[in-house]
Design a protein around this nucleic acid. Sequence first.
DNA 1: CATGAATGAGACTTCATTCAT
DNA 2: TATGAATGAAGTCTCATTCAT
Lengths: 207, 207, 207, 207
Amino acid sequence: MSSTGAKAVPDRRRAILDAAVRVFARQGFHACRVSDIADEAGVAYGLLYHYFPSKEEVLNTLFLERWGVMLQMIREVDAEQIPVREKLGAIASFIIDSYRHDPDMMKVIIVEVTRAANSFGQTHLGQIREAYRMIGTIVTKAQREGVFKPDIDAEFAAMTFYGAIEQVLTGWIFGLLPQGDEAFERAKQMVVETVCGGLEVARAPAA
Amino acid sequence: MSSTGAKAVPDRRRAILDAAVRVFARQGFHACRVSDIADEAGVAYGLLYHYFPSKEEVLNTLFLERWGVMLQMIREVDAEQIPVREKLGAIASFIIDSYRHDPDMMKVIIVEVTRAANSFGQTHLGQIREAYRMIGTIVTKAQREGVFKPDIDAEFAAMTFYGAIEQVLTGWIFGLLPQGDEAFERAKQMVVETVCGGLEVARAPAA
Amino acid sequence: MSSTGAKAVPDRRRAILDAAVRVFARQGFHACRVSDIADEAGVAYGLLYHYFPSKEEVLNTLFLERWGVMLQMIREVDAEQIPVREKLGAIASFIIDSYRHDPDMMKVIIVEVTRAANSFGQTHLGQIREAYRMIGTIVTKAQREGVFKPDIDAEFAAMTFYGAIEQVLTGWIFGLLPQGDEAFERAKQMVVETVCGGLEVARAPAA
Amino acid sequence: MSSTGAKAVPDRRRAILDAAVRVFARQGFHACRVSDIADEAGVAYGLLYHYFPSKEEVLNTLFLERWGVMLQMIREVDAEQIPVREKLGAIASFIIDSYRHDPDMMKVIIVEVTRAANSFGQTHLGQIREAYRMIGTIVTKAQREGVFKPDIDAEFAAMTFYGAIEQVLTGWIFGLLPQGDEAFERAKQMVVETVCGGLEVARAPAA
DNA sequence: CATGAATGAGACTTCATTCAT
DNA sequence: TATGAATGAAGTCTCATTCAT
């Protein structure tokens, strides 16, 4: 019966999006052909144009879909009444878990969008900026509470924090850093510890 | 007279490389045409093929030229007998000054190479890895000396440090962070302070 | 009730034909899509293929439907016992009234068929030629009767007459000539007066 | 020596234009491929894009080149101090001789431009209108001089005259009217005689 | 009847690269 | 050296038509 809730008809649009993630991750947006995506999805390439106006829009759709979830997550984290370490930890965890769950998707988002200053990065600059802005807000609050040093610009700290995470993901993407469940968990802790506590051993505060 | 030592003949090869930097920075490697580079250099596009076997090789040349200087710089810094903060500070200064001196070149290197996991990033993975490795060595030494915490993986710390810098440059490239001489100097200090000292206010070490 | 004689069910085939006229007129046969016609008709585009084997056949149907009426009209006019001026006047009136009543249809017939020498004009050459032939017959009769000059080829005169009318319609289609009830009536008179009486003021016949 | 005046290098741009005329005439603009034109010209299809930005621009170039000559001719004819019959005769002669000399070119201009209300006809409406306008001016002058009847709108008469000629050309293009040197000469006379003197035998003017 | 998802032939256009001059 | 005409592989996108539902 169709009332079971399971879709009787295959969702080709979803299949195309999922295939696009794999193909973009493997070959890159520019190096792949529309027919590569279609082949990966097991459909005729014309069908892609039934659901999307262009190859670009496939990537835009993927990005917005995923980035929206992250923005929502940051928004919720920011609203919680928890220490700043936990907030930044939650963000790092979300991003790293996103990579663990779907490394191809994160690779595509980072490589093809957030770091592509001349193409999709420009297209989605507003969305990207929003993430930085919200992290900056978290830092600012921590500075007001006296938990974070006031002499480091909040927006700068936000870029540093987010940049550190993205670079770790880049390390995994390039195969330069070890991966695995343990590595992912350690990474969550280390990135927060580094940015919050610093690499240096704790010293007595200036008297 | 040409005997003054100055080159009387224009260095077309150099002109092409310099033009390529500007064009790659403005349009991106994929979006620009060989003729765009030639136009910018004021030469016929066929001439590019006298000096380089392909468009790709122009970018490869630019990257290797510049990246080699940075590797040499890190190598020298690492060899010096100075505190780790100064070493990392010297690296951060070099990169940021490189951006100050030639933002187009740094944009090209970052956007088209070090973050392009599916194209030139793969081509130059060895060179890129070498930079991370050397920074990791600096961290490892600091850990052996008891200056840096031993419980954060050195290679991880290296990625974090370099990632923070690159993200700040990305912020400038995207126009998300303020630029200017003062901003550049502050950035040098802040990135080192953040990664070494942490964002948190200093606390007394665990007794 | 459906027993009233009026069709209770909508005539989809007719709706598609009527929509096609509007769409062909607006966008041209080549520039429009089958789905444009379907949208205009308010049906799914697949339905078009229930009633017509192809997009081309929709235009063929429209043309033959309308052109057949015109041929029949010319045939009847020719059979009447009236002066040649009245015959040509009746033909001009019919064509101009056709335009007045349904300018889109006439635009499609003229632009897409009677003047499309490389596509539908070839397909329907026989039908088109038949119209010229019948007009030519009318001219020939008038020449035999001594009303029309014998030294102008009848088939040539037929082309001239029909061409003049079609050009006037083209003027309306292009927006180059004023339209309106008065303009249409004047056009009927002027085209007949021009072709029959000439543009020159009447002179005494050569003695 | 290259000083003989003969071009040593083949003019590929011209070859492409000439080939395009033949291909457009044979297959129609829409039905032909860019590669058909290139094949006809004996060049690689990429070369077409070296000289023209698009297939459309090839047709635009052909039209403007030829139509400009015609406008210039009409302009000169209009300026002469000769009877209106001679003026219209000169115009008819020019157009018919153009067809005799290069029937493909005239076919393209008529079929693809001056009668293509939904495509190139719109693009070049201004140019087309200019021709009608100048002919209309000639008619107006003849009316002022008392040679042409004042009760037929000049712009209307212009459309009729030009339409008659174009229809005769269309007859040749469709193969509906006989061609040949004699036919062309007769056509020149007949079209002027028809439009100026009318098809009817001359009668005494109304007393 | 009616729908619109699915197909894929086909066309335009781009542009890196070659090479005759 | 220097030029830019010439080449053609390659890729995106369109859209008429089919057909399962």
